[in-house]
Design a protein around this nucleic acid. Structure first.
Lengths: 192, 192
DNA sequence: TTGATCATGTAATCAGTTACATGATTAC
DNA sequence: GTAATCATGTAACTGATTACATGATCAA
């Protein structure tokens, strides 16, 4: 049901169509949650039926614009107040890192380098967004903008830490492969 | 299909039963992936049918122990070599952080404090595991143990960074609520 | 006019969770 | 003996992805 709250929150921040929400999920909101249009449209219809959102206008090409109702906001706040949070982790990169032992050292180093590249790329994107905020954002922004800036900061720190980790891991993996290549240096613990 | 590779990798590292794998998913492997027994048992049966794993023994209470076959290892390696990685993010905490604007400042600060607590708790757990590794692990361990140690490092850095972020965010949220409480200090940008 | 993008929807399938169901072993 | 844990399985349901389907608008 968490997609429902994501939609309520996004539509509370700013009225939008299903298509607009789809784009937000593939941009800013995608750092927190994502969904395909085939999941968004039916959920919007259900929210509309439950009077959590309302249609406030239309655009060209059958565009339907929605906004969160007062009831929807209450529902959103009830969820936000609920202290039970799902922290289930499903991270393909982490799983692959866990299994690098099954690859050659060179391939493992290559994997970690790609991870570093990815995180640095993500960081560049976030830094561009961060640059658009005023320097004195802590006092110059409203609550909505501040929570956006604070969540952005989460991404900045996350990708910084993971880029550094991947660099470190690539070094270690490469280091090991270099040692293994020295004739006679391949010892017990390098096999299996 | 990623659960399949998770099982192949875990069973390649060490033969186990479905129940053993379930426990691994709720411990070490849970930092990368997780699954319920109702998903594990059918997938093991399918892997067995595809000759990716084989039954190598049994234990009490109908316990069936599996091991990854050579074909299974090849399948695992093919996946590891595939450069396309799913990086879809679905993080309830991040989503909630994004929507803290809809809560009161005090509630938001409380949310961030809980996040900090969670990450510090997770960090403590990882540090205990890290303490069991030898100090000279970079040379003293085999490839399998090293990839485990390197993945553990990922978690250490991740939770460290996020604990620091949450502290920072809690401070900012509390700060703001303190300012808002000064009579006449609640200004334009604190509303909506 | 035609190709790209905007825009919405449904259907089929796959992945993941919760609930149902059963029985063996072990520790007390 | 009896409660806890070990151990495996299936069924029903929900969430998420991929594929099918259609049509309007806009820019070249």
């Amino acid at each position: 049901v968490i997609l429902r709250y994501a939609l309520l929150g996004l539509l509370a921040a700013e009225p939008a169509s299903g298509f607009d929400l789809l784009r937000r999920f593939s941009r800013t909101a995608g750092y927190a949650w994502s969904a395909h249009h085939s999941q968004i449209y039916p959920e919007l219809a259900r929210c509309l039926g439950d009077r959590l959102i309302e249609e406030i206008g239309a655009g060209p090409r059958g565009k339907r614009i929605y906004r969160t109702t007062e009831l929807g906001l209450q529902t959103l706040r009830a969820w936000l107040s609920d202290p039970s949070i799902d922290r289930t982790v499903r991270s393909e990169p982490t799983l692959r890192s866990f299994f690098t032992w099954a690859m050659g050292d060179a391939a493992a180093a290559e994997f970690y380098r790609r991870e570093a590249d990815y995180h640095r790329e993500a960081l560049r994107g976030l830094e561009q967004i961060a640059a658009e905020f005023p320097d004195d954002w802590a006092v110059a922004l409203n609550a909505k903008q501040k929570s956006g800036r604070m969540t952005l900061e989460r991404g900045l720190r996350l990708h910084t830490a993971l880029a550094e980790w991947a660099d470190w891991a690539a070094e270690h993996a490469a280091e090991r492969s270099a040692v293994a290549r020295v004739p006679g240096a391949a010892s017990e613990h390098d096999r299996q």
